[in-house]
């Protein structure tokens, strides 16, 4: 067992364990913290696979921005704790069946055809090379994405203003 595979299995265990914890926690804040740990693990995994830029993005955007947003939302809207089961037993059964089928197929694929193993070629995409590739070959897509951000900004602005106007109108009605 090489150092690489040792690291891989270590990370895989961390990711799996923290994701399981995130899914099963009833306290939403705890769940989000576990999810952050899971994202850090995936980031390390990307780094191990030769994508350092993707690893940085994973930490900055997923673990950083999006999870913090989740925390904000959880803290701002008072989510009442569910004491009862999250979903009824009726929905549990299909979930278990699908899970078992998936596990069975996964085991078959893993151990069924030992001859069809394919080793992945080792590749490293440095941030520099990645950036050059994207901006040289796909700058049309980059431009489209920038328009997309403009549209998202307008949408956020509109929805934000809607809230302000609504509360202002409510304030006027009940002085």
């Amino acid at each position: 067992m090489t150092l690489y595979s040792l690291l891989f299995y270590l990370l895989a265990i961390i990711i799996l364990a923290s994701t399981v914890m995130a899914v099963t926690r009833r306290n939403l804040v705890h769940a989000i913290i576990y999810l952050v740990v899971s994202f850090f693990g995936s980031a390390m995994l990307f780094y191990l696979l030769g994508a350092p830029f993707l690893a940085a993005i994973e930490v900055i955007i997923y673990a950083g921005a999006i999870m913090i947003l989740f925390l904000f939302i959880v803290m701002m809207i008072d989510v009442d704790r569910h004491k009862e089961r999250l979903f009824p037993i009726r929905q549990c059964l299909p979930a278990i069946i699908f899970g078992l089928v998936y596990a069975a197929v996964g085991l078959m694929v893993t151990f069924g055809h030992s001859g069809s193993k394919a080793s992945m070629p080792i590749a490293v995409a440095t941030p520099n090379a990645f950036g050059r590739f994207v901006f040289e070959h796909h700058w049309l897509a980059v431009e489209i994405v920038s328009l997309l951000l403009l549209v998202a900004l307008i949408g956020a602005l509109y929805l934000g203003r809607l809230k302000i106007e609504k509360s202002a109108a409510a304030g006027k009605e009940t002085p």
Binding site: H138, A141, I144, L148, G155, Y158
Partner: peptide, 28 residues
């Protein structure tokens, strides 16, 4: 852009742009 794109990334990105414009438009 969508009808002219012949690369999977540009197809996906322009599809998203048209969808997001429509989401905001509906909310208006």
């Amino acid at each position: 852009l969508l009808v002219s794109s012949v690369h999977l990334i540009s197809i996906y990105v322009s599809l998203e742009l048209s969808s997001y414009s429509l989401y905001v438009l509906v909310a208006l």
